[in-house]
Design a protein around this nucleic acid. Structure first.
Length: 268
DNA sequence: CGGCATGTTGCGCA
DNA sequence: TTGCGCAACATGCC
């Protein structure tokens, strides 16, 4: 579930399900997901409160409550929010439940997360994880005059820099991989070696990759049967959609980075 | 069985 | 301070 487009879809879902509603019951028994909170504090912070807004920055969600409290949600690798009828039995991998009331209409919003890498943090103020995030490419836009120097002063591989949440919030392995392919930039190129035209191409690539994933991961988007919508992510060994060369991969920052050795040739 | 996975954090060491 | 490799977290899928 986790990358900017998926989290944005989750945000829109939660907006439809919970904004304007009052939380009538809240439970999460998983201390690992709640870290550093506790099940009792979670329930206490939420029950009786009204949900005013669902915001997103990068891969984090923030539910704003009418008493000033906030619930922060990170989906980790496998988290997702779903809506169920009130009283529906817990399903596989269900980790938290928020029953909400809108007038007489009751429904239950559930957090599913098989792998439990996500977070659920009830707080009275913004948490450091949220505050430390850089600009969000979708809601804040990408400011070239800010991004260019941020990349230029670092010697790390451009792909690692794009995934640095303090530089751009929400870019993960899929978006970075796809955007660099679209931009024809080798993922290993140091930030300091990028030309202005590279940075512009990367920005265009990110915008296109985000729009593409939003379109077909969203509701009524092709998300179902069929091939993944990715050009190169997860396709090592398959032909490059642009030139037919077999796609290669390297490991950067511990993450697999697929690229086309022809289109994304390292310059020197 | 082994290998891999859309994320993040922390540690040791240079 | 920056960089880098690696392990850990917990689970499912191929």
């Amino acid at each position: 579930m986790p990358e900017l487009p998926d989290v944005e879809i989750a945000r829109r879902d939660l907006e439809r399900w919970a904004v304007g509603a009052t939380i009538v019951a809240a439970q999460c028994g998983d201390r690992y997901l709640l870290r550093p909170g506790s099940p009792r504090a979670f329930t206490r912070a939420l029950v009786g409160k009204k949900v005013d807004a669902i915001e997103r920055k990068g891969k984090w969600l923030r539910l704003a409550l009418n008493d000033g409290g906030r619930l922060f949600s990170h989906l980790g690798m496998t988290g997702d929010w779903v809506s169920r009828p009130i009283g529906a039995p817990p399903q596989r991998s269900e980790r938290a439940r928020l029953d909400v009331a809108r007038g007489r209409r009751l429904s239950s919003v559930r957090y599913l997360d098989p792998r439990r890498f996500g977070r659920l943090i009830a707080a009275r103020r913004d948490i450091p994880e949220w505050t430390a995030l850089g600009p969000d490419p979708l809601s804040d836009g990408i400011d070239l005059t800010a991004l260019s120097p941020a990349l230029a002063v670092r010697r790390r591989a451009v792909k690692e820099l794009l995934m640095d949440q303090a530089i751009l919030a929400g870019v993960g392995n899929i978006l970075a991989t796809e955007a660099l392919w679209m931009a024809r930039v080798d993922p290993r190129v140091p930030g300091s070696a990028l030309r202005p035209s590279d940075v512009r191409a990367i920005v265009r690539g990110l915008r296109r990759a985000i729009a593409r994933e939003l379109a077909d991961r969203g509701p009524r988007g092709g998300g179902g049967e069929g091939e993944s919508a990715f050009f190169v992510y997860g396709r090592r060994g398959q032909p490059c959609p642009r030139c037919g060369t077999a796609l290669s991969s390297v490991t950067l920052g511990g993450r697999t980075s697929v690229f086309c050795p022809h289109c994304q040739a390292r310059r020197r």
